[in-house]
C-alpha cells in the first residue's frame, strides 16, 4: 500500500531559503539547491517550494532554482506562490516541477483551476487552502478560507471550497491551518479530518508541526495522506530520516 509522504517545505525569497535556516554543515545556508539536495539524501518523499518573493523582478529566480534542483534531485517537486496564469504553470513544469500549487488565484478566479487541470492534467495541480477556524467555542466547527497570509477573510467555507476545487479537477489539497501555522503546537487535526472526509483526493496537512508526534497525529487523527513541515527540518531539530523511523515505530507506513 501507499506510504504516507513526508514533505519538507522551503520558503524561498528572491532565490534564498528564508525562515532563519541554520544548517551547520552546509556552506551556504540559504541556498535552496543545497537544502533540497540534503532533504533528498535524508529521504524526503517530495519537496515543496513556496516562492514568497514580493518583487516581480525577482520572480524569475525561482524558475532557475527549480531547474537546478530538478537536474539533480529525482523526486517529485512542487512549486507554489505567485502561480496566476497558465503561462506560470507551463514555466514551472518546463523548469522541472512536477506539480504547482495554486492558492490566491484560485480564490479570485476558481475557473482557473478547472482550466489548469484540463490543460495540464489533475496530477500536477495542487490547490493550496489557507483555513482559519471561525466558529466560536461550543458552536459546530467551521473554518473559512483566508488570503494574504491569513489576514483577509473571503467568506468561503473551507469544506465547501475543498469540495469545489476537487470537483474542478484538483489533484491534491495542500491544507494549511492559519491558526496553527508557526505555533509548533501540532496540526489542526479536526480541520484535516473534516477536509479528508469531504474530498476523494489526497490531502497534505500543513501548519503547526513542532515535534514528531505531531506528524503521527496528522496521519492518525487527521487522516492526512502526507504531512508538510518546514521549521523542524530547517533548524535540523530532526532529520527526515528520524521523522520517518519515528512514524514507522508508531505504526505509520512510510518509505524508508
Amino acid at each position: 500500500m501507499l506510504a504516507k509522504r513526508i514533505i519538507p517545505c522551503l520558503d524561498v525569497d528572491a532565490g534564498r531559503v528564508v525562515k532563519g535556516v541554520k544548517f551547520v554543515d552546509i556552506r551556504d545556508a540559504g541556498d535552496p539547491v543545497e537544502v533540497a539536495r540534503r532533504y533528498n539524501e535524508e529521504g524526503a518523499d517530495e519537496i515543496t517550494f513556496l516562492d514568497i518573493t514580493a518583487s516581480s523582478d525577482d520572480r524569475e529566480t525561482i524558475v532557475h532554482v527549480v531547474e537546478q534542483v530538478a537536474s539533480e534531485v529525482f523526486i517529485p517537486l512542487t512549486v507554489g506562490g505567485g502561480i496566476r496564469t497558465a503561462d506560470d504553470i507551463r514555466r514551472m513544469l518546463n523548469a522541472g516541477a512536477d506539480k504547482v500549487a495554486i492558492n490566491t488565484a484560485a480564490v479570485f478566479n476558481p475557473e482557473f483551476v478547472k482550466e489548469a487541470t484540463e490543460r495540464f492534467g489533475s496530477q500536477c495541480i495542487v490547490v493550496a487552502i489557507d483555513a482559519k477556524q471561525v466558529s466560536a467555542e461550543g458552536e459546530p466547527l467551521k473554518w473559512e478560507i483566508f488570503t494574504h497570509g491569513g489576514r483577509k477573510p473571503t467568506g468561503l467555507d473551507a469544506i465547501e471550497w475543498a469540495k469545489r476545487m476537487s470537483d474542478y479537477g484538483a489533484g491534491e489539497i495542500l491544507l494549511t491551518s492559519m491558526d496553527r501555522d508557526g505555533t509548533k503546537i501540532g496540526f489542526d487535526n479536526k480541520l484535516t479530518r473534516a477536509i479528508v472526509e469531504a474530498v476523494p483526493i489526497p490531502v497534505i496537512a500543513s501548519g503547526g508541526v513542532g515535534n514528531l508526534d505531531h506528524m503521527v497525529d496528522g496521519v492518525k487523527q487527521g487522516g492526512a495522506d502526507a504531512v508538510l513541515a518546514a521549521s523542524i527540518f530547517h533548524f535540523a531539530e530532526y532529520s527526515i530520516g528520524e521523522a520517518k523511523t519515528f512514524m514507522q515505530d508508531k505504526g505509520v507506513e512510510v518509505r524508508l
Binding site: M1, L2, A3, R5, D45, E172, P200, D225
Partner: peptide, 17 residues
Amino acid sequence: TAPDGEAMKIPHMGWNR
C-alpha cells in the same frame, strides 16, 4: 477501502512497493 480501513484514492499517487 483497503483491509486496514485506508481509502484507496484514485489516482494511485505516491510511493508503493
